[in-house]
Design a binder for these strands. Structure first.
Lengths: 293, 293
DNA sequence: GGTAAGAACGTTCTAGAACGCAAG
DNA sequence: CTTGCGTTCTAGAACGTTCTTACC
């Protein structure tokens, strides 16, 4: 299938065509204008002086050395590529014809990869289209001769089992994916619930503390008695028509951490709301503060 | 050249040979006596609990995970092998038929590599001698023999694939079982948490209602003021020496549904306890009852 | 303008190949 | 000397992504 066939052997530099028979000049110009991203990204990484402790040009300026593989993988690779896998980086280097030149160091070299000669990157070619072993008669079809048929006979039955196994495997994998998603969702619910619970426990405790201290304070009780009539009037009013301003205030104060009380206590009585407002009013005016308790 | 030749067709279970043509009995006994060093070293590394942060058994105990590649390479590999190269380690794993089972983690699995089943290591075979490309009949030319060899050729690679698929299937099924168990456990947690949350919301609402009604009652406030001095004395006493009877009573009343308040509010202040006791005392003597609100 | 096909490129996992080494 | 294992470096293979191209 590959376009190389016979001529490619002599066309080292211009192998780039491969697929497009028409685009002889076009692809060439494209290559000239922009080397593959991998090469320019690698060049930039190597050439950046601020990271010379991790990766730098080699002693002869015709190679580069990765001095610190973990840092290179963790910090540099993700900044330029979509992974942090050193092996993948090396695989790309090999794809572009780089060679490891020192068995004791991660030092790679390539003819066209020279310091200060970024324009030479365009001479470096990806070497995927090797593989000159296939040629005609791909594999699956019958090579018509005796051997081919024989192989077919041998494969028969086994292929069936393979198909079966593959089906099973696919089913299992789909099930796994589904389960994992479900698990993830459930974990998330769990987390949310736990947070709600913690917030609620905290608020409950704060309320207890607050009430406890309030009850011990003669001043608080006295004021409570004084305002009792007022309070009742407020309750009466709020039973007929809600006061948005105060209700908002209440919501803000009461659901400060995550708003769950209001959200999950839709049945809270008007009387309770009024009382809480009462408490909160005292709270701000007289220094009764939940945070202080 | 393979040792199996004709007989292998019937030897499904004995695929283990593969490499050793001569050593049918010899290699078997050797394998029994001592699994390849690589396997036992790897097993020991994984099984060492002191390094679980770096490498440990997988979630299903049928795999292992390298959690920290740099540390693994720097610290563990040189202690067991003659290198510190993670890629070399992975190459060996593949040579012994391990597969990477999670694209997001360095988690490898192999049928015979199970926690607590070190003896199964002997079932793992090096698979170097696949691809019988060397020896005679290098090219795809006529295999001297006729049908028999031909079938062998046809089977080869397919059987390997079947083995691989079976392994995958087993791994997937084990993972499924594990996930299902985990899911079940998580669901249970979720249920428990939900119950706790509901109970707590209910109690919080009851308390709100109770307090609201209490606050609106002049009688309640009056009594509260009257008893304030008493209350203080109680507090003073309970700071020095707890009153078991009243404390128990408090616990019973307060954790009526599931006992979570006490359990999850260990920091509740003595003052708050005293106040609650105060309220509860009024509750029983004057008809203030949580159940009624 | 949208879009489907296809090529090149990128990422991942596994295998091939060469070499050193040690044991039988 | 042969053979199997371990280490190293490179390549194969499969699949995903991106970009171009051509056609509707």
């Amino acid at each position: 299938m590959r376009g190389d066939t016979a001529g490619s052997v002599g066309m080292e530099g211009a192998y780039s065509t491969g697929g497009g028979p028409v685009t002889n000049a076009v692809s060439a110009s494209l290559n000239v204008n922009a080397p593959p991203p991998f090469l320019s990204k690698t060049y930039d990484m190597v050439d950046d002086p601020s990271t010379d402790a991790i990766v730098s040009w080699g002693p002869g300026n015709n190679s580069f050395v990765v001095w610190n593989v973990p840092e290179f993988s963790r910090d540099l690779l993700p900044k330029h590529f979509k992974h942090n896998n050193f092996a993948s980086f090396v695989r790309q280097l090999n794809t572009y014809g780089f060679r490891k030149i020192d068995p004791d160091k991660w030092e790679f070299a390539n003819e066209g990869f020279l310091r200060g000669q970024k324009h030479l990157l365009k001479n470096i070619n990806r070497r995927k289209p090797s593989h000159a072993h296939s040629q005609q008669t791909p594999p699956p079809q019958a090579p018509s001769n005796a051997v081919g048929a024989c192989v077919e006979v041998g494969k028969f039955g086994l292929e069936e089992e393979i198909e079966r196994l593959k089906r099973d495997k696919n089913v299992l994998m789909q099930e796994l994916v589904r389960l994992r998603q479900q698990q993830q969702s459930t974990d998330h619910q769990l987390q949310t619930l736990t947070q709600r619970l913690q917030g609620m426990e905290q608020r409950q405790q704060q309320m207890m503390s607050f009430l406890a201290k309030a009850m011990q304070s003669p001043g608080f009780l006295a004021q409570l008695v004084q305002q009792n009539e007022n309070n009742r009037r407020i309750v009466e009013v709020s039973k007929k028509r809600r006061l948005p301003k105060e209700e908002n205030k209440l919501g803000e104060n009461n659901s400060s951490s995550d708003g769950q009380i209001i959200k999950y206590q839709p049945l809270m009585t008007e009387a309770a709301k009024a009382m809480l407002m009462q408490i909160l009013k005292l709270d701000s005016s007289r220094g009764w503060n939940l945070e202080q308790l």
